[in-house]
Amino acid sequence: MWVFEQPAYLLLLILVPALAYFRHFRRNRGGKITVPFEIWNSGGFSPPFLARYVVYVCAIVAYWVGVVLWIVALAGPVSVHRERVYLTPGVNIMFVLDESPTMGAEDVGPINRFESARETIRRFIARRENDPVGIVSFAREAALRAPLTLDYRTVLQALDTIQIMQLGDGTAIGMGIALATLHLDAADGGESVIILLTDGVNNAGEILPETATRVAANLGVRVYTIGIGTEGEIALEFTNPNTGQTYRGRITESFNESQLRWIAEATGGVYFHAASGGSLDAILHAIDSLETIERRSRVQVHTRPRHRILIIVGLCLIFAEFVVRKIALGEIV
């Protein structure tokens, strides 16, 4: 939307028709010389209609359009956009995502556990407005993929680059929770939450899940745990990003439900079991509603000046008229 900073200048537009009349239509105006071609009582003749006359009229129109643009530019046109500004901090949400090879199991559709988790997180982030989000992923080791930020585009880009088995072949749940807690500690105010998505039993890392959970609990970080997968024998397929080799097989192992439940309850979180892509989505919606906080916001108005382009176009039109009238058509004054 465009508005004018000083609309009073637009009143100058009233003068434009008067000036145009003064220049182009007034009888006895300057700039023309009357020359007799015929004797006084003959019929006379009209000048023939020439293409150059059309060019002349176009040039005049361009000139006055240029003048109008300059007057509009004087009024200070600015484009306005409104931005919602949050006054209260949001909930700091750190995803801790399992990327061990078993996440390639194909029991949670449409592709596998890992892709369902990724897609669900993507949709979850798309619903956020003022909650800083970060991602930690883990397998044998844990790594920070995106620090807590409101810059969701960067978080999504980081999410897209995670691949199964980039961090080895174990399941270091304790390391994941510990690293997420460490980075949540830097958050500026507001509630802090970890959402842990895993399908396995802790079998790697120097920090036990119990230790990491106690640290999180002490810092007031709630951990929501989500166990992904179904019971029984499941087909598995993943590509090792280091060798490019694709592995296929069947697995029977499952996650340790009592451990995940304990982690959640020790920190004031909730444990969920996701057996399908749809239930994963529903779980994150549930976490959404558990983590609603009061939000206060106001609307901030930003303006951007737009006069420059009008001045440039106006100058071009006025100069074009000069070129046509003076050089192409050879007007004397």
Binding site: P132, G134, P147, L148, T149, D151, A186
Partner: peptide, 15 residues
Amino acid sequence: LRLIPMTPDTLAVDS
């Protein structure tokens, strides 16, 4: 290249 998005996490910036 945006290496680190706007974050309070100075640890991440430092690394």
